[in-house]
Amino acid sequence: MTHERFKHLLLKVVDGVASDKERQEFLAHIRSCEECRCEYGEFRNLEELMSTIKLKDLSEDARAAYARSLYNRLERGLGWIFLSLGAILLLGFGGFMLIKEFIINPAVSVILKIGVCAVLAGLIVLLVSVLKERLFVRKYDKYSKEVKL
């Protein structure tokens, strides 16, 4: 009996789905092969152990809490999408107005322009730095990779 054939029959016999002929073939083999007999015994013992082990069902409270948490997360996801869209629009419009009304306006002094640009540049650098740190310390990034369907 080949090893492939043995492992195929072993599972069928242990799981009780072998035909009579397959069972006889298997039993004949293990009578003459101590190694396979030993493995069969170990598999049977594993089955007996595993048949006594179950996973507890979720309680009604746990199921309700799970559903609540899931819907909160779904809602929050939509909230983040709207917030991001709004922020992009406002920042784009604000940037446009800043350039139009402030940066290229000859009535505003150069010193004031440099001061405001420096404050904005500082804020952007700090924001990017904080965001990088936040992303780095996360234990995992849940949404950065598309699921392959």
């Binding site: 007999r37 030993c38 170990e42 013992n45 007996e48 006594t52 179950k54 507890k56």
Partner: peptide, 25 residues
């Protein structure tokens, strides 16, 4: 570490150790 495993009492005190090559008892 799965705390939710439940281990039922065996229905009979027989087999796990009855096999000569047993180690899972």
């Amino acid at each position: 570490n799965i705390e939710d495993f439940q281990i039922a009492e065996p229905s009979s005190p027989s087999s796990p150790s009855s096999e000569p090559c047993s180690g899972i008892a």
